[in-house]
């Protein structure tokens, strides 16, 4: 064997096996990109179509009515040979102005005019309240599990419960909230009932996230502190929690996305199809907690299932979906980015 031949010994030769490997790798790649493309398709569809509702071509470029008004019915009618579209209020004013229009035949589409302001407010209220409950419960539970608990039957039981709680379908949480808060506690359809239902639903996420962040604080911090004569609580408060807190909060943002995005748990516990008053228009302070609210996800459900699809309703449907998707997506993106950054930053 001469030198030239031996130099070729390790050279890659194209053969069937190699081609098969390539082909199969391409299949895997295809699977990945199919997933990404389908996700992108959903986003693109809603962003492009929804942008038409939310943005305008002239200044201030944002359809402020849509974001700041309450939903109304849309009336479409022909007037002096022209097609007119008006919201409920405008239509009434129009009829007063033109008495001859009193009998004009108008097609009406509910919720298709006005805006979604009450829904945005309702969703924000639901998220704030439920996350406050979930965070206080969840962080404390995580502190117990990670700092105090010693392995034993009880702790295993707690962990099992958390794992299983994470797998309970959201509609079951809705049923539970309905049975317990709405009926048994007599809170009716209210913010309070929605808060607790959502908080319990998101509790496993918060506990897991908090525990992960607590685990990331090195053991040396605790030992060092204890060896200096700190009590357990002093150690946790001064030397563990401050370093775990950023992580806890970032990971919990993902919980916010979940809370904001769920419809099923609030369907019977907190959400109204339509409500004229804004949440702060209450007589007593306690009424604030015991009132139902409109919520974005529920509004999307209502406008996409209860009213027909056509060019007039499509605007509010896509507009609502757009606003909702953008809110949730921004929260989720912030969570993912912050988490990745945090992972890189804290290396003790």
């Amino acid at each position: 064997m001469n030198l030239e031949n031996s130099a070729h010994l390790f050279r890659a030769k194209p053969n069937a096996a190699r081609r098969a490997e390539r082909g199969i790798f391409w299949l895997f790649r295809l699977a990945t990109y199919v997933v990404l493309l389908s996700g992108a398709a959903v986003f693109a569809n809603i962003i492009f179509k929804g942008a038409g509702t939310v943005f305008k071509t002239e200044a201030p470029f944002i359809n402020t009515t849509f974001l700041t008004a309450a939903p109304e019915s849309l009336y479409v009618f022909e007037w002096q040979g022209q097609k007119r579209e008006m919201g409920d209020h405008a239509f009434r004013a129009f009829k007063q102005q033109h008495p001859e229009a009193a009998n004009v035949k108008a097609e009406s589409f509910v919720y298709s005019a006005g805006g979604i302001f009450p829904c945005i407010v309702g969703t924000v209220l639901l998220v704030l309240g439920s996350m406050a409950i979930a965070l206080s419960l969840g962080v404390c539970a995580a502190i117990y599990l990670n700092e105090y608990a010693r392995d034993g039957a009880f702790i295993r039981f707690v962990r099992l419960a958390i794992l299983n709680l994470a797998g309970v379908p959201s509609i079951v949480f809705g049923l539970f909230g309905f049975g317990m808060f709405v009926i048994f506690f007599g809170w009716n359809v209210s913010l309070l009932a929605g808060w607790f239902t959502l908080a319990f639903m998101v509790l496993p996420v918060v506990i897991t996230a908090s525990e992960e962040s607590l685990k990331a604080v090195p053991k040396g911090f605790r030992e060092g502190s204890l060896a200096l004569g700190a009590t357990k609580w002093q150690t946790i408060r001064k030397n563990v929690l401050p370093y775990a807190l950023p992580g806890i909060l970032t990971s919990s943002i993902l919980g916010i996305a979940r809370v904001a995005g769920e419809t099923a748990p609030i369907m019977f516990t907190a959400a109204y199809v339509v409500r004229d008053k804004m949440p702060w228009e209450v007589e007593k302070f306690s009424d604030f907690f015991l009132q139902g609210v409109m919520a974005l996800p529920y509004h999307i459900y209502v406008v996409s299932s209860k009213i027909p699809q056509n060019e007039y309703t499509e605007r509010v449907q896509y507009g609502t979906a757009f606003v909702f998707l953008v809110i949730v997506a921004v929260i989720a993106m912030a969570s993912i980015l912050l988490r990745n950054r945090l992972r890189n930053r804290y290396k003790w």
């Binding site: 809603i46 904001a260 995005g261 769920e262 999307i300 299932s305 979906a321 909702f324 949730v328 993912i336």
Partner: peptide, 22 residues
């Protein structure tokens, strides 16, 4: 890819449902 796929999970199901209908 990883954050993108994680990001898909953030699409609220009601939005997906709406997408299905529409």
């Amino acid at each position: 890819i990883k954050p993108c796929i994680e990001f898909i999970s953030a699409i609220p199901s009601v939005v997906l449902g709406f997408f299905g209908i529409a």
